[in-house]
Design a protein around this nucleic acid. Structure first.
Lengths: 343, 343
DNA sequence: CTGAAAGCGCTAACAA
DNA sequence: TTGTTAGCGCTTTCAG
């Protein structure tokens, strides 16, 4: 690979001049510039961006730390981030934690060592204090869509009022007339903290005189497979159950599958509601009632925020957005009097 | 950020010694090493990986160029690549072309300028000659899962026998007794080249005495939305039609939705088969019959291949794998004599 | 308008 | 075992 020195020699000038000529920063004689450009082209010169990064202390790279990109929710997030970054001349390194917060910490440290200009930190496999530690370093980092600790105690973050979403679901189901509601939540039985979207749901149910039966509370890890399994557990329980709230769409997809496998027709025999509104939700059978998170808009805003932060602009993070419930065909008033078991 | 010099000063040694001590490459006195490590920790020293990259001529970064990561197929691919890379200490920069080959070329050039150690090139928004041009540069690049030009004329690539897949679909449908088959293919009417999975399907149909009715041939861009729209077009045509082959699962999902919207029951009134076997396909309603591409295994192999190439090992690319048809519930013998229109 | 010189942070010979 | 020196490829004053 030819360096700037090679083209300098070819053009009969010095490296500094080539640098200036090629970047169009300073002023260079028209003819010399042309000669330089020509030589560069001929030699197939391509700037070494890591050398430039070293000098400039800017890599034009950002890091995106997510749970796992195979989850459509994060995939959509990643697309939004990359598109905004790309247009600004930034590239993005993505790293999957798969829920391992030990790994998450390593990854985030590595990104910092690689001198990324900033980081977008999604929840799952990243502890708040690790994020704070990085932030304390001065590295711009914006936490996005964190359930607990919406802003991670940081000045810049972009969030959503997940609690409001949980309430919307409770109201929707209650209004339809459901009284026997199961939930497939993300988390583990032993972990004491509960995410807002689950907590407010439970609280609202109690508030409206229909406290949830904890035998109908299932924990899962957010994956399709686990959501599917949890739904089977729920449907196997010999109790009335007319609706299931899966706290993300991917698990809701698993719930729909389990319902079908057990001969439960959705929504006649069972209502299902999800959370997130991933792209495919409206195409499912039946189209899924869910809580919409404006992922794309939010992540675009988050990325823009990060880029401005990097540029040293004085910016202020947008306030948490209110999610909205999108009623589709997977929910309906309870039909056949609380079927207990499909098959 | 403290540099290696700061640590050196603190420990009363020289930078070179710190470098050696911290990397554990050379031999350093036990006590000095300990002192150095201690100082490093105290100062919160973190190596500057771009400086290291400049010296070592190795960034431990690879590029992944894909169509768009929001497509579950590519998301699964990306996960596999990242996981293998991660374990080897590599990070991955992903770049979406969204089908724009002009952009694809820029991205690939930029990755090269950033000195990535290698590139995984997926089809869609990347022209074969652009890939070849980069390869000619000496930058390791492995094309994966390209439909046309399986190996892009390169020595190292990983592929699949897509043609065999198309044939499997044709045989499956024909064997079930279907004679009126529609197709939702990826491409555009004007583009002369057809991908293997479509071409062999068409040819096999003809071979077995059931040439496809070109009025039942729809082109789409591979997205859920377009697949959905194309299916509606197909179902609106006043012709017998008992099965639809969507040449990727994402579009097949759109076909299932369209069928439902038109009151066509799958598989009783309409059989649907996809291609790829993305993770959610077996959870759809009904579970989708499809051609399985072992994405994860293949991409893991591809990434491993790339890493070895980077390491300068003498490697040989695996031969194209044969895909297999996974029969699920979305296909069945044609039922009600070729319904023409559902509603 | 162009060149000389220094420096970004790290590693690698080679000496001491 | 540790230090000296040079260099990776580029940018940026500061002179000329």
């Amino acid at each position: 690979m030819p360096t700037i020195y090679d083209v300098a020699r070819a053009a009969g000038v010095t490296a500094a001049t080539v640098s200036v000529a090629l970047s169009g920063r300073g002023v260079v004689n028209r003819k010399t510039r042309e000669r330089i450009i020509e030589c560069a082209q001929e030699l197939g010169y391509r700037p070494n961006l890591v050398a430039r990064s070293l000098t400039m202390r800017r890599t034009h790279t950002i890091g995106l730390v997510i749970h796992d990109i195979a989850n459509p929710f994060y995939a959509e997030v990643a697309l939004a981030v990359e598109q905004i970054a790309q247009r600004a001349g930034y590239r993005v390194i993505f790293a999957n934690t798969t829920g391992d917060s030990r790994l998450g910490e390593e990854l985030i440290e590595d990104l910092a060592a690689r001198q990324v200009d900033g980081i977008i930190a999604m929840p799952g496999g990243l502890r708040a204090d690790a994020v704070r530690a990085i932030a304390a370093t001065g590295l711009p980092i914006v936490p996005c869509l964190w359930d607990e600790e919406p802003n991670v105690g940081l000045k810049h973050s972009v969030g959503v009022n997940f609690g409001a979403g949980g309430r919307l679901v409770a109201d929707h189901l209650l209004d339809l007339g459901h009284r026997h509601i199961g939930i497939v939540a993300i988390g583990t039985p032993d972990e004491p903290t509960m995410r807002a979207r689950e907590a407010t749901f439970r609280d609202r149910l109690a508030e409206r005189g229909c406290p949830i039966d904890m035998a109908l509370w299932q924990w899962a890890d957010g994956s399709l497979e686990r959501g599917h399994g949890a739904a089977h557990n729920l449907l196997a329980v010999a109790r009335p159950l007319t609706a299931i709230y899966a706290t993300n769409d991917v698990m809701a997809l698993g719930v729909l599958a389990a319902a079908r496998e057990r001969g439960r027709h959705v929504p006649d025999d069972l209502s299902v509601v999800g959370f997130d509104d991933i792209g495919m939700s409206r195409f499912l059978t039946p189209p899924l009632t869910t809580v919409r998170i404006e992922k794309t808009a939010l992540m675009a805003a988050a990325t823009d925020l990060l880029l401005r932060l990097i540029a040293g602009e004085e910016v202020t993070a947008p306030p948490p957005l209110l999610p909205s419930l999108i009623p589709r065909d997977s929910t309906a008033p309870p039909g056949r009097q609380s079927a207990t078991e499909g098959r």
